[in-house]
Design a protein around this nucleic acid. Structure first.
Length: 473
RNA sequence: CGGGGUAUAGCGCAGUCUGGUAGCGCGGAAGUUUUGGGUACUUCAGGUCGUAGGUUCGAAUCCUGCUACCCCGACCA
């Protein structure tokens, strides 16, 4: 606006002119950015042989990821868009629950881990590296030590509690056998949050807050995640839940009450600061039977009426832990309490794997033709297909639709490639955008375009205005 | 970490047994054709056959070492 106003009468300085030009260039780039002919979407027509499970196959075919080493992947533009959408939801829900984002480094000093005793305990899964000065470093598999170090450096008073710090950052665990694409990779993205409280009651409340936030997070992605009592593994502690989504290709066997599939998730305006409310959420969601095979209690499960038993396979998408003073004690993270005495802080940690979630979402949402993205995480909401590039009327209709959708802030990918209709349909179905707007000379002759719902397959013949209306543009 | 396997064009594969200087399909480029569910045809480009060494007049092919990747199990966000 400012530039348009001054461009007419006022002489611009060279710097201003350059600035204006670069802004115009930026806008132009933004428009071209989502034209398929100018995008980077390396689709594979054939199935890569190494991909055993459907999500891995579809991620490779849809040009979302590329393997660079065993268990190490590059995220291509389409995959990155999904990852970012997931991260955005995770962030919103973490913030809503009172967690605060920071960013810690991937490389850590071994000394930090020697303090907690985990440098030797962690085993070969931890990637150990020496720097040029022969100092022992490591690529972090998790961050309890580092966040505790940061906490103890600054926090001295109980008045600064409770505190929950999180980041979304790449982790490395040198898995013996990475497989299933990004489902079990060595390098993976993790949202890890760490809570600090003065006492156990406070720590339980922090745990419950994350518990509720996780239920909301997964629900927003269209996933029904079931919290299951879990083993704590090398993190330690005695209270822990895994969040599992049911999928036939899941890695673990799970058992639960069928009611989980119908339970309501906490609303957005629930009071995260009210202990009773949070405890209520926790109690409700842990009142029914739910366990992974490691924690399975067969007699208790079989005591349920058979019609209420669900025995299935599941994918772990989140894991939360309350471990008390395991790290704060070893690393001397203490605060002065109201009584003037030093108290060792109570901690918990809370992980979600966004990169794994991408695969899990595909496992839960696909058909023979490809991926079916839930709206909330779709790389683009709308796919606009021009069935006859070069036809003036079709080109004009697409350009107009494209521009209006863009202006309304609708994520749209415009397939303007000079290609056969069949190829475009196949591409759209493969990459799974929720809405397809199909524009060709036949329907256009009647003043209509076709809108197809990827999930239901339902097609409607609509006017351009009706399409814009439906998409909220 | 145990067991099994693979490595030849961007992807999927044949050729290896029986040594003679590399081929098919898809994809890519150019063209003609076609235009509402991966169109057909023509032409073209693209490979030091994972790597190092050995045997041989000659190695993708035979021998040895190494590396990478995949699968099955035991382990894990």
């Amino acid at each position: 606006m400012f530039f348009r106003d001054c461009s007419g009468s006022v002489a611009l300085s060279p710097a201003m002119r350059q600035c204006k030009a670069s802004i115009r260039g930026f806008l132009l780039l933004r428009v071209l950015y989502m034209r398929l002919s100018r995008y980077f979407l390396p689709i594979l027509r054939e199935n890569p042989k190494e991909a055993e499970i459907v999500s891995h196959r579809l991620m490779l075919r849809a040009g979302m990821i590329r393997q660079e080493s065993a268990g190490i992947y590059a995220w291509l533009p389409l995959g990155l868009r999904v990852l970012n959408k997931i991260n955005a939801i995770v962030r919103e829900e973490q913030n809503r629950a009172g967690a605060i984002e920071l960013l810690m480094p991937t490389m850590q000093s071994a000394d930090l881990w020697r303090e907690s005793g985990r440098y030797d305990a962690y085993g070969k899964e931890m990637l150990r590296i020496k720097d040029r000065h022969e100092r022992d470093m490591l690529f972090g598999p998790t961050n309890e030590e580092m966040v505790t170090e940061i906490f103890r450096a600054y926090v001295r008073s109980y008045k600064d509690l409770p505190l929950n710090l999180y980041h979304i950052q790449w982790k490395f665990r040198d898995e013996v056998r990475p497989r299933f694409g990004v489902m079990r990779s060595r390098e993976f993205l993790m949202k890890d949050a760490y809570s600090f409280d003065l006492d156990q009651a406070g720590a339980i409340h922090s745990y419950n807050k994350m518990f509720a936030a996780y239920l909301r997070t997964f629900a927003r992605m269209g996933l029904k995640a079931i919290p299951m009592r879990a083993d704590t593994g090398p993190i330690g502690g005695n209270l822990s839940h895994e969040f599992i989504i049911l999928a036939s290709t899941g890695e673990s066997e799970v058992f639960c009450h069928k009611n989980f599939l119908e339970m309501d998730t906490p609303p957005a305006d629930i009071d995260f600061d009210d202990r009773a409310t949070m405890q209520g959420v926790f109690d409700t969601w842990t009142s029914r039977y739910a366990a992974t095979s490691e924690m399975h209690d067969a007699p208790a499960f079989e005591a349920l009426p058979e019609s209420e038993q669900v025995s299935a396979r599941g994918i772990e998408v989140g894991h939360i832990f309350y471990f008390g003073t395991k790290y704060s004690e070893a690393m001397k993270a203490v605060v002065n309490g109201p009584d003037g005495k030093e108290a060792t802080v109570q901690m918990g940690s809370y992980g979600i794997g966004p990169s794994r979630l991408v695969a899990a979402l595909i496992e839960a949402n696909h058909d023979d033709n490809g991926i079916i993205w839930p709206e909330a995480v779709a790389p683009f909401r709308v796919g606009l297909a021009n069935l006859k590039v070069g036809d003036a009327a079709t080109d004009a209709a697409c350009a107009s639709l494209y521009e209006k959708l863009e202006k309304a802030g609708v994520d749209v990918l415009y397939d303007d490639r000079d290609d056969r209709p069949g190829a475009k349909f196949a591409t759209m179905d493969l990459i799974g955008l929720p809405h397809q707007v199909i524009v060709g000379p036949k329907s256009l002759a009647e003043g209509k375009v076709e809108m197809k719902n990827r999930r239901t397959g339902a097609r409607e013949m609509l006017s351009v205005d009706e399409v814009l209306n439906k998409l909220g543009a």
